[in-house]
Amino acid sequence: MGVGEFITSKLDHAVGWARKYSIFQYPFITACCGMEYMGVACSHYDIDRFGAGFPRFTPRQSDVLFVVGTISHKMAPVLKTIYEQMCEPKWVVAFGVCTCTGGFYDNYSTVQGIDTVIPVDLYIPGCPPRPESVLDGLMLLQEKIQNQKQEILPKAKWRETQSSVSRLL
């Protein structure tokens, strides 16, 4: 392994470590799973232990989109807009079986899994998932964030983006 490679992989590791413990989540709550989400977020199960205790209620400040509850075809465009408003790097968690596959709602109004609308990183099945499985899912997500290739823009690319932004402004 060359020195450069060593440094990038260590940097990757460090950035991943930082990212996985500062998950700013956007809870996109629509249905029954939201009640269980409240249970997880409150003091009894306390997801703050995983560095994810701080919901941001604006997509532009958050890293992880928690899609909690059934998505209907009327709601799908809203979900898509919100996903597009989030900044990179971003992850999506499908919370509950409705978001994974449509669950037991197989009818004219429900989306059969949100992965038909936006890409999904982690599926937490259950109707609703128990808080324990949500915590388990969260740890899996952390693992994924830690192990993935971190997108850190190289300097040249960074400048390019900057100038294109200032051109726009």
Partner: peptide, 28 residues
Amino acid sequence: LMYEEFEGHPLRKDYPKSRRQPIVAQRT
């Protein structure tokens, strides 16, 4: 309850239960 683009009246007995009319493009 439904959106304006929706065609038909879903609770009529001749509307099939799972005829969907999505308004965003579906990923495959």
